[in-house]
């Protein structure tokens, strides 16, 4: 009685199950489609301490009154990042979820995205009409990157304090993220980082993809990043 799987070509309209709750269908190319009426998912990755949570908080402040927004955190130590967002009153509790990653933050955003998909779907169920979902990866090394089955866009955050060599080292976050943010420019002098070197190397690694230099202490609303997110929200690709 079991159907041969080969006879089941997927069709989003006549799929094999009811839709009591919304959940996305990965299409055959494994790329999460942008669907009208569904939120935009943006992954925020980068090394430990580069300013991911600070950027998420900034985006919540900048965009929270314009769009319905929610956040999934993947901190190694479960709720640290989520607690920060709650404590600082950036987002109410029902808009933040924490996901445990079993000592492997990169696995949870790339190889096995199950727990993050689950958290995103729960947010979509409990917050109908949510327009923007940010997924903060746990701090990781330069080889981490988000699966195209989990998010529509990804921002990779590095900081000048990690050394001005980081853009040159590359890695998928630096070379392929839809937006590279080089944070903590206020510290450049103190750590002897040459921003022009970082700019040159980022251009060489990224071609036409955009890079933004930022200091969240000087620009707590992350204005240029918020503007980039607004432009993503306004297109359906």
């Amino acid at each position: 009685m079991l159907h041969d799987q080969n006879t089941h070509d997927r069709d989003p309209e006549t799929d094999d199950h009811e839709h009591p709750h919304p959940h996305p269908h990965t299409d055959t190319a494994g790329v999460l489609p942008r669907t009208p009426g569904r939120g935009l998912r943006i992954g925020i990755g980068g090394p430990v301490g580069s300013g991911k949570t600070a950027l998420v908080a900034a985006l919540c402040r900048a965009l929270g009154s314009e769009v319905s927004l929610a956040v999934v955190t993947n901190d190694i130590y479960t709720t640290e990042d989520a607690d920060f967002l709650l404590r600082n009153g950036v987002l109410p509790e029902q808009r933040v979820r924490a996901v445990e990653t079993g000592c492997c933050p990169h696995t949870a955003i790339r190889d096995d995205i199950s727990a993050n998909l689950e958290a995103l779907e729960e947010l979509e169920e409990s917050l109908p009409g949510v327009e923007l979902l940010l997924v903060e990866s746990g701090g990781d090394n330069l080889t981490a990157t988000f699966s195209r089955g989990l998010v529509h866009r990804q921002i990779y955050v590095v900081d000048v304090a990690g050394g001005d060599k980081v853009p040159r080292k590359g890695g998928p976050g630096v070379t392929r993220a839809d937006l590279l943010v080089i944070n903590k420019t206020d510290l450049a002098d103190r750590v002897g980082a040459d921003l022009s070197v970082m700019d040159r190397d980022a251009r060489a690694q990224r071609g036409q993809l955009p890079t933004i230099f930022l200091s969240l202490t000087e620009d707590p609303g992350a204005a240029p990043v918020a503007a980039w997110v607004r432009s993503c929200l306004s297109t359906m690709d």
Partner: peptide, 25 residues
């Protein structure tokens, strides 16, 4: 129904199956 193959079992039992198990101890 597909015939039983060892390959199908290996796929299902592989720790790399992306079904969330890696985060559980």
């Amino acid at each position: 129904m597909a015939a039983e193959t060892l390959a199908a079992l290996l796929l299902l039992a592989d720790g790399r199956l992306p079904a969330g198990g890696h985060a559980h101890s």
